[in-house]
Structures are given as C-alpha cells and as structure tokens.
Design a binder for these strands. Structure first.
Lengths: 132, 132
DNA sequence: ACACTTTATTCGAAAATCGGAATAAAGCTG
DNA sequence: CAGCTTTATTCCGATTTTCGAATAAAGTGT
C-alpha cells in the first residue's frame, strides 16, 4: 500500500459521510441519468421538500453534486460519474451483506415504498412533463 | 435504473457510515495484506489503544472486519476483499477532489504523521517481530 | 404589486458520534 | 496465585446529525 496522504483520507471520509444516509443514496440513484429536479426527488422519494433540500445541501457541500438553476426550478446532477460507480460497488457489497444474513427484521415502516398506485415519476417537474 | 431494494440501500448507508472516519479508513488500509494486530494499529496510527478498539468495534458491527483471537493478541482482517476495492475507489475520488481545489488549509495538526524516526511497523506485535 | 410555485435556509429538540479516562476482561508467565 | 500484556468496554461530556416546522428567497404570471 503506497502510503496514502492524509488529506486524501480525510476527504475520503467526508465523501463516505455524505453517502452514509439512505435518502442521500436514493437521491444519487435518481440522479443517474441526466440528473433530476428537486420536485422530482420529493415526489419519488416521498419525503418533505425541506428534508430533500437539506440532504441535497449535504451532497453539495461534499462536492458530489452540482445545482443548476433553470428558471423557477433547479436541476441537480452528479459531478463525477465515478461516484456512481462507487455507489454501485457499495450497493453490491451491501447486497451480499443482506443476503448473507437472510431476511431478518421486517424493514422499518418509514422506509417502505409509498402506498397506493402513485406511479413512479408522476410529478410535475419539467422532465416528467416531457418538456426537456 | 433497476429500482434498488430498500434493505440494500439501508445496508449500504451503514457501510458508508462505518467508512466515514479517517481513522477507520486508515485502519482498513493497514489491514490490506493479511490483517493486523490491534497493537500494530495503535503503534502505526499513533492513537490511544481504547480509541483504536472503539473504531474496530464500529467496523466489526458493520460486518466489515473479523476479529480472531490468537492467544493474548487479536488479529483483525477485512472480511470481503471487495471492500478494499471500494476503499480504493473512494480514495481515488477523494484524490481528485483534493487536487481540484489545490492545497488550501494546512492539514490539521492532529492528523499529521508522527514525529521522530519511529519507523513504520516498529511495534511488538507478532507480525513485526517476524514471528508469523 | 400580488399571488403562486419551486427551492433554500433557519431554528430547536432528539438522537447519534466521538474521544479521553478509567476499568474490565482475557490470556500468558513465573 | 500475583503480576504482566493485550484488548474490550463503560462512562461521560462535547460536538454533530437529523428532522419537522416555519420562514425566506427566487422566479413566474396576472
């Protein structure tokens, strides 16, 4: 191991911290192709807008995403595609952890997929209206 | 995007949280080849033993490392080699972040490499004495 | 200007994390 | 057994995270 420099390690820890919340991972997952509007994220993830904005701030401050104003709306994008590869590896590792210990506890209520037939993507952001 | 399952995402977040501290990343880095004894970690990382043990507990509870008793000593190993690949990607991403914004603040005192000529690995763990 | 939409920020409380200090626990040696 | 070495755990205070609620800010349309 080539003796990593300290600053890199601290930065790596900051990145990992930004990734250490389920909502933020889901946000990054939604940003995969072409980014997403804030409104879209609140709809798809089913969480209050303020909360989504807070999590987006964390991702922004970690330098992982960019925010671009488009009139009234704001579109967020992943800054470096390598981040998505990283998230993929993280999810793969997580998958083997999960299957390794089988289906144990019954999944927190809060994180269950939203009820009802609210189709994924049924929000009013420009993307979902087919405007862009 | 193949609609990740929630449990995986929560597990991924837990893993990321375990990775979100510089000392823990350095520990994993030290475990790369053949694992390491706790004593070795405290020597190389220059931190109090209790603190190292606490961080090791976090890594254990996240399922990232194993602890194996060998008489008086305990050797820690990375459970899944894919974790090291993940850490590598994390460090690479961190490196571009660091070089991107140049050398700014002068690196916290606490994280500076240890003073003096205490050679890396000059501890009394079985490995460093050439016993194993 | 006013109303409306979309997003960001601030505030406060509950919870989690972190680290030092002290202590416990487990194994070895004599 | 007493003493030593190595590692784990507990306690506690300080800091940080997280989230809801409320509010601010920025842009659009009338």
């Amino acid at each position: 191991m080539p003796k990593r420099r300290f600053r890199e390690i601290e930065e790596a820890a900051r990145i990992a911290r930004a990734l250490s919340h389920p909502v933020r991972l889901r946000i990054l997952d939604e940003l995969r192709e072409g980014g997403a509007y804030v409104m879209h994220l609140t709809t798809v993830l089913g969480r209050p807008q303020a909360n989504i904005s807070q999590h987006l701030m964390v991702l922004r401050e970690a330098g992982l995403v960019t925010a671009e104003r488009e009139g009234m709306t704001v579109i967020y994008r992943v800054r470096d595609p390598r981040l998505l590869a990283l998230v993929d590896q993280l999810l793969e590792l997580a998958e083997s952890h999960v299957v390794a210990r089988g289906a144990e506890e019954p999944l927190a209520r809060e994180e269950l997929p939203p009820r009802g037939r609210r189709r994924r993507g049924a929000c009013r952001c420009p993307r979902c209206r087919g405007e862009k």
